[in-house]
């Protein structure tokens, strides 16, 4: 991230200088701010930045990002110095500091996913024309490699927009990307047939009696 410069300032200012909440988001922002005690309104910076990013996304038909004037707008609403808001926005990876595509493909590359084949997932993305840190020319996909997203028991996984796709391999990844490109909505969650969430593959191996009801194991000890 460090070498990613903020996008051209004059241009961004011209485009986003007049950013303001939509009526709906303005109400939502007020609601969010009200969650925090008086004098601690600055704590609302994170949900508000997220809200702003989503509004930018809605306006640009993408996953949204945080142009500097938008960060300033949010900071001004919370009466906090711009640099403090910028610190937050640049610290967390889920705030995009540069525009992303309609589908933000975030491939987990941390150890459990890597052991379970995240290299194949990356290869599938690459063969579909996605380049790490870049947006495809058709504006559909932005690829990012991220650290652990907490789906280790159904690794490997990608997060695309707000949904997780788990238990991937090369073909399943290609299928998901194709479906998204065709405008369909693939089923989020595990892609393993017969698996619902993150239950063990091939049925439970321990605590089997618990499947049917609440079993008291204390007598077995």
């Amino acid at each position: 991230m460090a070498d990613v410069a903020f996008p051209d300032e004059a241009e961004t200012r011209a485009r986003w200088g007049n950013f303001a909440w939509t009526a709906e988001n303005a109400a939502q922002a007020t609601k969010i701010i009200a969650r925090y005690p008086a004098g601690r309104q600055r704590s609302a910076i994170m949900p508000l930045l997220d809200l702003a990013q989503r509004q930018v996304g809605a306006e640009t038909q993408t996953q949204g990002w945080l142009p500097v004037p938008v960060i300033e707008y949010v900071a001004a609403q919370l009466d906090m110095p711009f640099i403090r808001a910028l610190e937050v926005a640049t610290f967390y990876t889920m705030y995009n500091m540069a525009p992303v595509a309609r589908y933000h493909v975030q491939v987990c590359g941390t150890t459990p996913c890597m052991l379970r084949g995240s290299d194949d997932v990356m290869a599938a993305c690459k063969n579909k024309g996605l380049i790490k840190g870049k947006t495809t020319p058709d504006g559909l996909f932005t690829l990012t490699e991220v650290e652990c997203m907490g789906n280790c028991s159904s690794a490997p996984m990608v997060q695309i927009n707000d949904d997780n796709y788990e238990d991937l391999d090369y073909d399943r990844t290609v299928a998901i990307l194709d479906a998204l490109a065709a405008g369909e909505t693939p089923k989020p969650g595990t892609q393993e047939p017969g698996r619902h969430t993150v239950e063990p593959l091939g049925g439970p191996t321990t605590l089997k009696e618990m499947v049917s009801g609440n079993h008291d194991y204390r007598g077995d000890w």
Binding site: M1, V68, P81, I83, E87, T90, F91
Partner: peptide, 18 residues
């Protein structure tokens, strides 16, 4: 309040606002 630390971890940088 115009000096801050942006980015994180190894990429952390001290800078003035913009």
């Amino acid at each position: 309040e115009s000096i801050g630390a942006i980015y994180r971890g190894e990429n952390m940088q001290i800078t003035s606002y913009l």
